[in-house]
């Protein structure tokens, strides 16, 4: 079938684009671009899962693809957009520790490091199937790049998106391990939902309870009636 010939190439292209989207996550300044990049990344993972399903024929991969499509391409970005509407912030201009050019350099070093480490330690498997090796290197690199995004971004929402892309990296890594039990994916989804829910409650809580802080301060007589700190 033509599909089985094209599938490995498409998987490779999608893997590379996944890394590219990871790079965009590190440097994008607009909130809506961030969410869109995350959607794009999840969509690429759906394509990779479909490609692997065609290559190897496990039905679980198809289910994984559908689940990822529903939850990560549609569901979670919708949640995040809801949160964004409540906190009216359009841009995330501040970075701590590292600005985007430096972060991109660091991520290049990370990819190189992961490649070298895995090549040394996984010699026995490297020869076996190069798609697994590429998938594992890119999966772990994406996890580390997501970690970098969590560290250098200041806003809580951006940190959450960095965390979500870390989970994408773990998913990408897990896709290449055949016969992984399906409920792993299910579990990651539940974990993500809990995390997004909780963080949304908290970040909205920070933002909306500014008034409550004032009443608390007044209660403790730390805020004088005119509004200054006594």
């Amino acid at each position: 079938m033509i599909l089985t010939e094209v599938a490995p190439v498409w998987i490779r292209i999608c893997l590379i684009l996944v890394l590219v989207s990871g790079g965009f996550l590190l440097s994008s300044r607009s909130m809506s671009n961030l969410v869109r990049t995350y959607q794009f990344q999840s969509f690429l993972l759906v394509l990779i899962a479909l490609g692997l399903c065609i290559l190897e024929g496990h039905i679980t991969l198809l289910l994984v693809a559908v689940l990822t499509l529903v939850s990560k391409v549609w569901g979670i970005p919708a949640c995040i957009r809801l949160i964004q509407e409540r906190i009216h912030i359009q841009q995330d201009l501040k970075f701590s520790y590292l600005r985007p050019p430096g972060a991109l350099m660091l991520s290049i070093l990370i990819i190189l490091l992961v490649y070298v480490c895995f090549a040394q330690i996984l010699e026995s498997l490297y020869a076996a199937s190069s798609l697994f090796f590429l998938g594992s290197v890119i999966g772990v690199s994406l996890v580390l790049m997501g970690l970098l995004a969590v560290c250098i971004r200041r806003m809580a929402i951006s940190k959450v998106i960095g965390y979500l892309s870390m989970e994408n990296g773990v998913l990408a890594f897990g896709l290449f391990v055949t016969e992984l039990p399906f409920f792993i994916e299910f579990v990651i989804i539940i974990d993500l939902i809990i995390l997004v829910l909780l963080t949304s409650i908290m970040t909205v809580g920070i933002d909306s309870s500014i008034e409550e802080y004032k009443t608390r301060l007044q209660e403790f007589h730390l805020l004088s009636e005119e509004g200054g700190i006594s």
Binding site: I16, V20, L104, Y115
Partner: peptide, 14 residues
């Protein structure tokens, strides 16, 4: 430029 650099290094890696 950094993004272009990232792309090109990625290409060599791949």
């Amino acid at each position: 430029f950094m993004i272009a650099f990232f792309f090109s290094i990625l290409t060599i890696f791949i």
